[in-house]
């Protein structure tokens, strides 16, 4: 069965739309929430991608060669990546100290 979908036409009266679109930073730069940051030691990384798989924030990113890096703008520092890493290649380092 098929029919015609509605025509989308902008309202002709004053309008504040109750709608949004998916986009990063709907709650700002959530990296600011972090008290500890994950630091990846690539020499220990075996590219298993568990950190990438389990990261709740999509802030572990894959390079072309499948080594991983962190998007610190948004990483909330939960530490799941470090917890699931089978080779202990990720350390959680307190924020606010030396970089």
């Amino acid at each position: 069965m098929s029919g015609t979908a509605a025509v989308v036409e902008k309202p002709k009266t004053y309008w504040v739309a109750p709608i949004s679109y998916p986009a990063p930073a709907s709650s700002g730069k959530t990296g600011l929430w972090r008290t500890e940051r994950p630091v990846i030691h690539l020499e220990k990384c075996v590219k298993c991608l568990y950190c990438w798989l389990y990261c709740p924030e999509d802030t572990i990113l894959r390079r072309e060669d499948d080594y991983v890096y962190v998007d610190y703008d948004y990483c909330k520092g939960c530490g799941i990546c470090a917890a699931v890493c089978p080779t202990n290649a990720i350390d959680m380092v307190p924020e606010g100290g030396e970089s």
Binding site: A25, G28, T30, Y54, P56, D58, C78
Partner: peptide
């Protein structure tokens, strides 16, 4: 996902 959302750190829902 969509980073920078309002989930708590370690949230299973965003996972």
């Amino acid at each position: 996902g969509s980073p920078g959302n309002a989930a708590c750190p370690g949230c299973p829902e965003t996972m």
